[in-house]
Amino acid sequence: MADQKSDNGGKGAPVPPGGKGPGVFAKWLKEQIQNLKGRVKEEGESLKRPEKTQLFKSMFRVKHDDSDRSRALGVLSNVFFHLHPAKINRDAVRYRFTWGMGGITFYLFLVLTLTGVLLMYYYHPTKGQAYQDIIYLMSDVPFGKLLRNMHRWAAHLMVITVWLHMFRVFLTGSYKKPREFNWCVGVVLLVLTLLLSFTGYLLPDDQLGFWAVTVGTTMAQNTPLLGSLGPLGRQLHITPYNDVRFALLGGSIVDANALLRAYIWHCIAIPIIASVFMGVHFWRVRKDGGISGPAPVMLASDMDKPVPPYNPPKM
């Protein structure tokens, strides 16, 4: 057995054949340990370059060196990163210009999705139970209070970042040709962000949400033509039982059905719709030639001359 082992694994001097006794065995063991140490050291060294391992190569498929080609491939061949082009306008990374608000908004959406899904584990959208769930979440669930706070504040922050993003896009004239349509997609996303936040307001089923939603849906009751209190509603036989408020609440008062509807809009319907619009929004940013600037300034004197587009679509 000892001979067999030494033949297979021993790289140094083999065990002399025919040797027997405890001295020979100890020598053999020592050599084996030496060999093992050598191999551990060798493989340990190779782990210092994880990008050379089969595991790494199977995942990333791209060389991990400092060449521009590898950097470009690192972005383009990654499912998450390939939203970006490989190269961008050198000034477009300047925070002073972009304010980073679009990206932060998307990041907040991801934070909200994650915290939202975790909150869903502790929440029943039923009258009576909903409020108790929030109390339980805040008092008994580990990190439950932090989770709820993060969801609430991220939602508020997202509203702010959307507005600031829009403000920047307007001030840099980034809605101008060829980005007109993407501005419109952005406006839809603004509305969806506000609706997402508003539908979440009712879910704790407390006084704050109840009265905010009562105020909100009473406004809907005044919709012209479609609301029971709105202009020309009465003439079209619109009543509190078939108007737009009824459709929003699933009833004529803010009650169990309204809670369920708000829950489904908040957790499923609007996030899906918003995700679709976000996909279009990001895709159009790329297709319309990347972010708009900082572009070279145009002069009023060359306004009437045909000007070559600054960032021609090339993806």
Binding site: L146, R148, N149, W153, D206, Q207
Partner: peptide, 26 residues
């Protein structure tokens, strides 16, 4: 999130109107 808690009022009560009843800030 650590320093400020998200508000939670009394359970919803249709018989007790909040005064002022305000919409969300936005």
């Amino acid at each position: 999130s650590i320093t400020l808690n998200a508000p939670l009022e009394e359970p919803a009560n249709p018989n007790l109107t909040m005064n002022p009843a305000k919409a969300p800030w936005y």
